[in-house]
Design a protein around this nucleic acid. Structure first.
Lengths: 75, 75
DNA sequence: ATGTAGACTCGCGTCGACG
DNA sequence: GCGTCGACGCGAGTCTACA
């Protein structure tokens, strides 16, 4: 599995766990709604700053999210 | 502490631990030598793909590196 | 072996609009 | 509520060169 694909999958999972729509998450993260969609569909590579911002809103530690990305990616 | 500053500090620490020069690390990561320097001096924000690539060469799990970045950043 | 600088390409991230 | 499209600014990442 590709890395952006892994990230997108994990992101969607945690967003739904938080009970947020792409629109709500984007608003709170101060990011664009379409960009969250692009991330989930693995069409963009987030920067480390973006990862931290999203994790803060999703109330999850970045390293925990990254760990799941590692698993899907297959490290 | 800024997030790119935190990442740069952690990167430099693990690069030296691995006994590599910026040049050697860059070569193995298939990145530019000057870019590694920019990262360590907090003048660039790595993408998630770049983080994973660097961590692979440094023989460290991305989430472990991220965890240290969190600590310096103060989460 | 590293810092810096300039110039370059391309992808991140934004925005408005439509189905 | 989400996917997609086109257009856009700007920053990631490259390359060359000098100290």
């Amino acid at each position: 599995m590709e890395i952006s694909e892994a990230f997108g999958t994990v992101l969607r999972k945690y967003r739904k766990l938080a009970g947020l729509t792409q629109e709500e998450l984007a608003l709170q993260c101060d990011l664009d709604r379409t960009y969250i969609g692009l991330l989930e569909r693995a069409q963009r590579q987030p920067s480390i700053a973006t990862i931290f911002t999203i994790c803060e809103i999703l109330k999850i530690k970045p390293h925990e999210l990254i760990k799941e990305v590692e698993n899907l990616y297959g490290i």
